[in-house]
Amino acid sequence: MRTWSRKNSLGGPKLRSEMDAREAAVLRSLVGSVLGLLQERAAAAPEDDLAALTGLRVGPSTPPEDAALARLLPDFHRKEPAKDGEDEAADERADINGALRSLHEPEIIDDKIAAGAVILDTLPAEGGRVTLTPEQADAWLAGLNDVRLALGTTLGIDPETPDHYPPDDPRAPHLDVYHWLTWMQDSLLQAMSP
């Protein structure tokens, strides 16, 4: 993949890069996997009679069990360890997270699916030139971030993770893909900056 560049044209700014067929296939596969997780979660939303009457969609009130999906759809409030006599406050925070998740998760999933769809729609299946509008570039940044979060969670990436694994480590190629996604996201972000 080439570094992203910004070109001004009569139709407005465009962001450009090129990917070979293998890179395009890897990115398509990763985005498709993340979209599959999100679509499964959306399909698991409970049926709600009030939602059917009002048109207000609701999502699950419990966090996802899958670690990668939980990273993509975190709680709205961090759970802090309860101090002595604060069990009631911890229960209240859990109720708040459940209510907020139920109300907002469908929209969040929609936005994440839309960002991934932009990547799939603008990425040539066999590789080649990628040209994006600023709005499409924003969607790419969001979609790439979701893929990085999911892959990073699956690999267990944390501050102690080395830059490279030994060549015989089965995680080595996946870590290389994670670094490639990071580079791609950073390159696009720099090209978007005036």
Rank of each mutant, 00 (worst) to 15 (best):
2 R>D: 11
3 T>F: 05
6 R>D: 10
8 N>Y: 13
10 L>F: 04
12 G>W: 12
12 G>N: 11
13 P>H: 14
14 K>Y: 04
14 K>F: 03
18 E>A: 14
19 M>Q: 06
24 A>K: 08
25 A>C: 06
26 V>K: 03
26 V>N: 03
28 R>A: 12
29 S>E: 06
31 V>Y: 14
31 V>F: 14
32 G>C: 11
34 V>S: 12
35 L>Y: 05
35 L>N: 14
36 G>H: 12
39 Q>S: 15
39 Q>F: 13
41 R>D: 13
43 A>Q: 15
43 A>I: 11
48 D>R: 15
53 L>T: 06
57 R>P: 00
62 T>P: 00
62 T>Q: 09
63 P>N: 13
64 P>N: 07
69 L>P: 05
72 L>T: 04
73 L>M: 11
73 L>V: 09
75 D>I: 05
77 H>T: 12
79 K>P: 05
83 K>C: 00
83 K>E: 05
83 K>F: 01
86 E>V: 06
86 E>L: 12
91 D>R: 07
92 E>N: 08
96 I>E: 07
96 I>P: 01
100 L>I: 03
100 L>Y: 05
101 R>W: 12
103 L>E: 11
108 I>K: 11
109 I>Q: 09
110 D>N: 07
111 D>R: 12
114 A>W: 02
115 A>M: 05
117 A>K: 14
118 V>I: 06
121 D>R: 14
128 G>K: 02
132 L>N: 06
132 L>K: 08
134 P>L: 01
134 P>F: 01
139 A>H: 15
139 A>C: 15
140 W>M: 03
145 N>D: 00
145 N>A: 00
147 V>P: 03
149 L>G: 02
149 L>P: 01
151 L>P: 06
151 L>Y: 10
152 G>K: 10
155 L>V: 06
157 I>P: 03
158 D>W: 09
159 P>C: 11
161 T>A: 15
162 P>W: 06
162 P>I: 08
162 P>E: 05
166 P>R: 15
167 P>K: 15
171 R>C: 02
171 R>E: 04
172 A>M: 09
172 A>H: 11
173 P>K: 09
175 L>A: 13
177 V>R: 10
177 V>I: 13
182 T>N: 06
183 W>F: 00
183 W>H: 01
184 M>R: 07
186 D>P: 08
186 D>L: 15
186 D>W: 15
188 L>D: 05
188 L>N: 08
188 L>A: 09
189 L>E: 12
191 A>W: 12
194 P>S: 10
